[in-house]
Design a binder for these strands. Structure first.
Lengths: 213, 213
DNA sequence: GTCTATAGGTGGATAGAC
DNA sequence: GTCTATCCACCTATAGAC
């Protein structure tokens, strides 16, 4: 267990470097391809040094990958700046795409890995919905709940038909995830470059929302 | 290079066992976790014996995983038995879900792996759209084209609005993939068991097609 | 065709010097 | 806090006996 660190520390802090490097490697290589030695190599320290900061390989992975969730959160909250319920919902869909395309490795980690691979190492009980399940919990705020709230807002404003908010949110999420994940997997390259994909994405979302009205 | 084999051979044929075992292991563990030794262990032969049948690790993976595409094909073609264009389209969506949920490892391999991981080992040029890209080519028939054909049928019958068939097919595919891949990743367990998910899936597809009408 | 034996590489983790 | 040295497990691939 690492000792408490001083509040102010340099940007080249070894522990921080290990964290970001480990996250990158994990997202590049996946869990089986991940190696503590490679992380140490990239950072420029010996493998043994890692054990000063983390209990081992699994603890390092867990600590490192938590950061991806914070990035996702930082995208979503930007959608709250929009003035109306519909614009906030559409902006959330935009930010969802932005996050996925600008952080494909994080996206794959959060949404395209089998849930078992993304579990906390050992201590915490793997209760469904606690960490990943139920939709990528943020530190304080579920991203899935974020989407549900945007849907509810639209229902309240009469912009989409009333119904089960959670189920409607699942439909919207599946639609966004379908497009983004296929794009990230390289299966939608026929659409063209990023702006072309964004246009198709927007039209697709618009069509979906018309279908929900 | 393996010698040509007699046309009739037993079910316990080592080569066939190696193929299926390798496919299972690859889909379980992914490319980095795949090991030739583990395949040999499961089959009950020595690691060296594998080299009698395949040129090495990569050749074994490529030969083994090709089978996943044939399984996918076998599901899709069942949809052609339906009598009307709309029923064929909806049946195709049903078969898509059946394939994914009944063969989650194959599904992950085909649709949820980064395209680079699923390329032929070395000889064949990695031309876009040749093997995986552009939508999971079948031996003779693109599965994406299969979906395009079902969409076109519906347009011809006046059941959905005319438009770019390919782009509409992408929308439908993204919707199906979104639901199936999230389910496989374990992020939609809140919906309930398999029949409950199937019901949500069907309603979602129905809503999508109403939106396209 | 399959085996054993072996070479040469990766990895995780620990002990002990500094 | 970082290092070197080390141990053991696992891997790919090859050589040569049977």
């Amino acid at each position: 267990m690492p000792v408490a660190r001083p509040f102010v520390r340099g940007l080249t802090d070894t522990r921080a470097l290990l964290l970001t490097t480990a996250r990158d490697l994990f997202l590049e290589a996946g869990e089986p391809g991940f190696s503590l030695r490679e992380v140490a190599r990239r950072v420029g320290v010996s493998p043994a040094a890692v054990y000063r900061h983390f209990d081992g390989k699994e603890a390092l992975i867990f600590a490192a990958c938590t950061q991806g969730f914070e990035v996702f959160s930082s995208y979503l909250v930007r959608a709250l700046a929009a003035p109306t319920a519909l614009e906030r919902a559409l902006a959330a869909c935009e930010q969802y795409r932005n996050f996925g395309l600008e952080n494909p490795l994080d996206y794959r980690f959060i949404f395209m890995s089998p849930a078992e691979q993304v579990q906390p190492p050992s201590s915490q009980p793997t209760e469904p919905g606690s960490f990943v399940n139920g939709g990528a919990m943020l530190p304080q705020y579920s991203t899935f709940q974020f989407l549900v709230d945007r849907i509810r807002e639209c229902m309240d404003a009469g912009l989409i038909a009333r119904g089960d908010t959670k189920q409607t949110a699942v439909l919207v999420w599946a639609h966004l995830h379908g497009l983004v994940s296929l794009r990230i997997a390289g299966l939608l390259e026929a659409i063209g470059d990023a702006p072309a994909f964004a246009e198709v994405y927007r039209q697709s979302v618009a069509r979906l929302f018309r279908g929900l009205a």
